[in-house]
Structure formats: structure tokens, C-alpha cells
């Protein structure tokens, strides 16, 4: 007789709480996984462009670095999926004979990828 009387309110509420926790956690993991995967793909695209820009800027004469603008010299077509995005090039004199060239790509609200190139004034033109 006792076995047929069904669930009490407390049992039902407890089961619902457990179910809610399990489902919410599963969905949160799913969403987080998707976001991280998307972010990783975006970063791979962004760092390809930063790497290309670095290859070119490392060949720019030390005296000409200050003339660099925010527009990247290299092609940014690969960043199409990140649109709208912005590029920045910031050149700072770190100490005499050394400049830091910071290249940044920003997209969406808070996503950014950055690379800083340290350039030394070797006095010559055959820079590697």
C-alpha cells in the first residue's frame, strides 16, 4: 500500500532541482565549448595576419618605423569572418636604439590579438 502512494512534494522538488542543475551545467559546457572553439579559430586567423605583418615590419628601416600607420601593409582578406575589425600599429621608443612595435587586431567587443616586435638600431641596412 505504502509503495503506491506516489511522490511527496519535497521529493518532486528535489528531483527538479537535480534535473535543473544537470541540464544547466550540460548546456553551459556546450556553449562554452562552442565559444572557445570559435575564439581559437579567430585567433588562428588573426595571428596569421600578425605574423605576416611582422615579417614585413622587421625589414622596415629603423629610422622609418615612426612613419608606420595603423593600416597593415599586408593583406587582411583572411580576417573577413572577423569583420568588423580594426588594426593598430603603435611604435614606442623603449630606450635609445630600441623601439617596440606593437601590432594589434581588434574585433567584436573585447577580442584582440597582439604581437610586439622589438627592433634594434643596428646602424646598417642588412637587417635580418
Amino acid at each position: 500500500m505504502r509503495r503506491q502512494r506516489g511522490f511527496s512534494l519535497i521529493e518532486l522538488l528535489f528531483a527538479l532541482v537535480v534535473l535543473t542543475i544537470v541540464i544547466t551545467t550540460s548546456l553551459a559546457i556546450f556553449v562554452e565549448r562552442t565559444n572557445r572553439s570559435q575564439r581559437a579559430s579567430e585567433l588562428i586567423l588573426a595571428y596569421q595576419v600578425l605574423s605576416n605583418e611582422t615579417e614585413v615590419i622587421r625589414r622596415v628601416g629603423y629610422g622609418s618605423l615612426d612613419a608606420l600607420t595603423d593600416d597593415f601593409v599586408t593583406d587582411t582578406t583572411i580576417l573577413q569572418p572577423l569583420a568588423p575589425f580594426t588594426t593598430e600599429v603603435d611604435v614606442r621608443q623603449h630606450r635609445p636604439g630600441i623601439k617596440h612595435v606593437k601590432m594589434t587586431i581588434r574585433w567584436r567587443a573585447q577580442s584582440l590579438a597582439t604581437v610586439t616586435l622589438i627592433r634594434t638600431d643596428t646602424g646598417g641596412t642588412n637587417l635580418w
Binding site: 548546456l27 556546450f30 556553449v31 562552442t34 572553439s37 570559435q38 581559437a40 579559430s41 579567430e42 588562428i44 586567423l45 569572418p81
Partner: peptide, 21 residues
């Protein structure tokens, strides 16, 4: 929720060239 998430993922797959992961 599941349909929304799946649609979002498929849109993401179409948007990016290769799933590097």
C-alpha cells in the same frame, strides 16, 4: 535552447574557412 545552439554552431561553421581544431 538546443535548436538555437545548433543553428548558432552551423552558422559559425559556415562563417569560418577551416575548423583548425
Amino acid at each position: 535552447i538546443l535548436v538555437t545552439l545548433t543553428a548558432e554552431m552551423r552558422g559559425y561553421d559556415r562563417r569560418y574557412p577551416v575548423n583548425f581544431m
